[in-house]
């Protein structure tokens, strides 16, 4: 998992404008692979979408679990069959096979955890594109369409192609149901800030929220990179800092420092300073 590859991409990349998700406006996150979704509560949450490899692993685990269940059931029912007749037992096994094939993922994903056992083991979860838990109907649609995703010959070629062609790694069933598979727990990304410069430098131009965030993240993670890598990244934003190389890095740091300083002191007593949700 390499989540934050291009921390300054937002400074210069012309991202797409907000596009319509299934119900709410879902903005495309330009800084990294996280998906920003705005909740009715007015706050933006970030979902980390899971890629096809991990999902293939979860599918393999589910296949294994179902296989073991079928084998154990066959042995148990085979013994029972001596008592009640082989035909009844064969029928029950056929029924179990049908249910495991079509309804195993539906029942688990429509349940409280929103994940099949395999997905749970790997820390995944199915949610609506808006971040809320999926409905039973959505679980049915996404899993009944699994058959097309599995084409051709159960290689999951169609599903893989669809995953790679969509921004949120959605297979065809996901597209029809309006669902995404996300990491249930987002592990915090490593951050190690470089020492702050002594004098903050005001921003020469106004930046958008995304761009400001990219700047601040650059500062927060600068400690993780070598000096050369830092300069390489800072050079992408030399239009902003007006310098390249090491002076460019420290100028960007100073600007990030200024931004955080200003925002936080405004937060302490300014317009939106006091806690709005006092008891």
């Amino acid at each position: 998992m390499q989540p934050h590859k291009y921390p300054l991409a937002g400074l210069y990349a012309a991202g797409k404008s907000p596009t319509f998700g299934s119900q709410l406006i879902v903005t495309t996150e330009k800084l990294d692979t996280q998906q920003a979704v705005e909740l009715a509560e007015g706050v933006e949450i970030r979902l980390r979408v899971a890629g096809p490899m991990l999902r293939a692993g979860a599918y393999a685990l589910d296949l294994l679990i179902r296989g073991v269940v079928m084998i154990v059931a066959s042995i148990g029912m085979g013994l029972l069959g001596i008592a009640i007749g082989q035909r009844l037992v064969t029928g029950a096994l056929l029924l179990a096979w049908f249910l495991l094939e079509w309804f195993y993922p539906v029942l688990f994903e429509a349940g409280k955890r929103g994940a099949t056992p395999g997905k749970r083991i790997l820390g995944l979860r199915v949610v609506q594109a808006t971040g809320s838990p999926i409905t039973a109907g959505q679980a049915i649609v996404r899993n009944f369409l699994r058959w097309v995703d599995g084409m051709p010959f159960f290689t999951y070629g169609c599903g893989m192609a669809s995953c790679l062609a969509t921004r949120r790694f959605q297979r065809l069933g996901d597209l029809a149901a309006g669902t995404v598979v996300i990491y249930e727990r987002v592990t915090p990304s490593p951050a190690l800030a470089a020492p702050p410069p002594i004098t903050p430098v005001p921003l020469p131009v106004g930046l958008s929220a995304d761009e400001t965030r990219a700047l601040v993240r650059f500062r927060e993670r600068a400690g993780l990179w070598s000096a050369a890598r830092r300069e390489e990244i800072a050079d992408q934003a030399s239009a902003l800092s007006g310098a390249s190389g090491a002076p460019g890095v420290s100028r960007l740091m100073a600007m990030a420092h200024w931004v955080q300083d200003k925002k936080q002191s405004a937060g302490a007593g300014g317009r939106n300073g006091d806690r709005p949700n006092k008891k």
Partner: peptide
Amino acid sequence: RELCVDLALAQSRMYGER
């Protein structure tokens, strides 16, 4: 809802990713 407000504040005040 309180936590949502806290998150919004932390985002807008650039309290950092941690």
